[in-house]
C-alpha cells in the first residue's frame, strides 16, 4: 500500500545496469563477470517491475519471474563452466585467456 514513484525505480535500474556493464567490461575474473551479469539481469528485472507498478499490471512481475529463470539457468551453466575450467588445470579464471581455445 505504498505510493512510491516508479520512475525513481527506473533510474535506479538504469544505474545498476550501467554498473553491471562496467563490471563485465572491467573484471577479467570469470566469476566476477558472472556476478556482474547477474547485476545487469537484476537491473532489467527492476525496470520491468517498476513499469508493471506504473501501469498496475502483473505482466511486469511475470517478466521478473522469467528473468529469474534466465538468471538461474545462466548461473548454473556458467558456474559449471568455471568448475570445468578449474578442473582442467587452468591456473586462473582469466577470461582473456579463453581465446586460446585450449579447452
Amino acid at each position: 500500500m505504498s505510493a512510491a514513484d516508479p520512475s525513481a525505480g527506473l533510474y535506479v535500474a538504469v544505474i545498476l545496469f550501467a554498473l553491471g556493464l562496467t563490471g563485465v567490461l572491467v573484471r577479467r575474473n570469470l566469476l566476477f563477470m558472472l556476478v556482474s551479469v547477474e547485476i545487469m539481469l537484476n537491473a532489467a528485472a527492476l525496470a520491468f517491475v517498476s513499469a508493471g507498478a506504473r501501469f498496475h499490471d502483473p505482466s511486469g512481475q511475470v517478466m521478473f519471474i522469467m528473468i529469474i529463470t534466465f538468471a538461474a539457468a545462466e548461473a548454473a551453466v556458467g558456474l559449471a563452466i568455471i568448475l570445468r575450467m578449474h578442473a582442467a588445470g587452468r591456473p586462473t579464471l582469466d577470461a582473456d585467456s579463453g581465446n586460446r581455445l585450449g579447452g
Binding site: M1, E38, S50, A71
Partner: peptide, 24 residues
C-alpha cells in the same frame, strides 16, 4: 516491495539471494 510487488520481493530473496548466491 515498496513498488507494490511483494511477490517479486519474496522471490528475489528466496531465489536470488537464497539460491543463486549460495551457489556462487
Amino acid at each position: 516491495d515498496s513498488l507494490g510487488a511483494p511477490f517479486a520481493a519474496m522471490l528475489d530473496v528466496i531465489v536470488y539471494a537464497g539460491a543463486i548466491m549460495v551457489l556462487f
